[in-house]
Design a protein around this nucleic acid. Structure first.
Lengths: 128, 128
DNA sequence: CACGGCATTTACGTAAAAGTCAATTCGGTC
DNA sequence: GACCGAATTGACTTTTACGTAAATGCCGTG
């Protein structure tokens, strides 16, 4: 496991811009350490970036991603906070399950659409 | 099956604004018929709205949703078009499968996060 | 030490997807 | 025919998630 990654290394690995990474830092999603003014990203930052991009692909906003990231962190020490956190996690999971249903339905309709196309091709005497 | 729905009926049903529906019309996603200046939405429009909102929840942009909607339509009559359409559908499906993987991973991590919280609660002697 | 190349900061720009507001205009009804 | 509430239109505003440009810093190499 590498100790540090430079900003450009990560931009290449994840195919994002330096602007994007600095933006994520401004938003408090990652906190790379500094050597002088230069950002040094640790493996944990790298993992966070992976999670952020995953969240984006599913259609979460930066704020929602921030919330989710909080949930991955060490659980709080206080009972009330813990219970609140569990509630939040449950909500987020319900949200994800809804997305999954939406996704399955869309996939199903696309399956149907493709089938229609294939049938239509067959009617036209094209061998698929 | 009702013949027509008014704009406000639909805004209530789907919890969106009239502005949103008009925006979707401007974008060519729905084409309600008119009686004078009043929009009359048919069941097919209603179904489209359902699909649009589903697309939004999964994180598709209006343009992507427009593409998907095209795919639900009658398959084209020309062979080249048909083959292109099938290719597009396949791409979109791959895209959705990626989203599904992302989703499952996120769900798994949230499961873990919740478990950590529950354990922590147990340590603190709280009966869940 | 000059240079190329990556980094940084600051500031402004922008596209998407609506929200908001003001000014009409319809359709029904009293 | 006056009136009211719902609907429409157009213009302007807002938020999100960065892009882009300008000016400058830092550093290893030849």
């Amino acid at each position: 496991m590498r100790e540090y990654y430079s900003i450009t290394e990560l931009t290449r690995e994840f195919d994002i811009s330096t602007r994007t990474l600095r933006f994520y830092e401004d938003e408090g999603l990652v906190q790379p350490v500094r050597r002088g003014r230069t950002r040094l990203f640790r493996p944990s930052d790298r993992h966070l970036i992976r999670q952020i991009l995953r969240g984006k692909r599913i259609g979460f906003s930066i704020n929602e991603i921030r919330e989710i990231i909080q949930m991955y962190r060490e659980p709080p020490g206080e009972v009330g906070q813990l219970k609140l956190m569990i509630k939040r996690i449950e909500e987020k999971r319900e949200n994800l399950r809804q997305k999954r249903r939406d996704l399955e339905e869309t996939l199903a309709e696309l399956d149907q659409a493709e089938e229609s196309c294939v049938e239509r091709l067959a009617e036209l005497g094209v061998n698929t």
